[in-house]
Design a protein around this nucleic acid. Sequence first.
DNA 1: ATAATAAAGTCAGGGATAGTCAAAAATTTT
DNA 2: AAAATTTTTGACTATCCCTGACTTTATTAT
Lengths: 162, 162
Amino acid sequence: MARLSDSIERFIIELMDGADRIELRRNELAQHFSCAPSQINYVLATRFSIERGYIIDSRRGEGGYVRIVQMRPDCSGENLLCELLGRVGTQINEDGARGLVHQLLQLELITEREAGLMAAATADAALQIPVSAKDVLRAGVLRSLLIQAFRNMEGGEGHDVR
Amino acid sequence: MARLSDSIERFIIELMDGADRIELRRNELAQHFSCAPSQINYVLATRFSIERGYIIDSRRGEGGYVRIVQMRPDCSGENLLCELLGRVGTQINEDGARGLVHQLLQLELITEREAGLMAAATADAALQIPVSAKDVLRAGVLRSLLIQAFRNMEGGEGHDVR
DNA sequence: ATAATAAAGTCAGGGATAGTCAAAAATTTT
DNA sequence: AAAATTTTTGACTATCCCTGACTTTATTAT
């Protein structure tokens, strides 16, 4: 029998129907498939991961939702974000970060102002901790920035700045 | 169900219509939305906080009111930057950082995309170190971002609205 | 002054969502 | 069949929104 996770994956993809984003209620979906709500999280984690080109956003409480955003993999056959994240790795130095940001700028995926911000956030001066750990920390910040930058490209409202 | 709080927030912002202050009756507003009066307090606390640059003033009893004042730092350039850096101080938590970014957005000093980047760089998730030091680190990153944001503004390119 | 009335504030709690994690179950690989 | 891997579930947690009971303050009437 087709695994439940696969069915749910297919169902969601069909729901998206080419659109690059969709919002759904976790519990409703779980009910539709008569499974535990956390099963949905599993599907999201394994089938709609960053590596596969998706970004998940969610909110709890009354009016809660789970939003799935598919990043368009345009600029390169492979998923560009995925590749960039790979290049960031677990640590990266200031020059490496700058180079990467510069490349985004060259590709016209971000503006000069945005590039300036990304560079500022990953500059040595911004990360005030013992030198030894800076590169690791910078990698975390840069990853977060990259994911956000790609979210921006989807034209949506990005995530709440709340 | 659409969140009542969001509707009320929107309603108030529309009422203000660019003005920097407004006075309203808590009970009337509650009645308009058919909700408990305390709901209004909730909206004020979560959407019109100090962090977002609002000050709430009120009076009880006959002729009571709630006044919402949007702080518009009248200083610009250097002074505003100074003030904001002061607010960041040596440490700031995630909510504080978000509120400040939200305010820059409201003041139209940065674009939504830029706000998203600033929020991403100062999110808890981006700073992968022991919790205890996060706020200090975040302050460093945010300071760096602010300085860069103001550098952008002086460049006078206006902001790309994309 | 005191009492009555008319606001607004506070806070704890409940309901509605979603997330996490570890253990059990199922499936696949060796 | 044993081991390894993936899937599924359930118990517990976290967050957000909304309400209601009770409190505080200001004004007005007696």
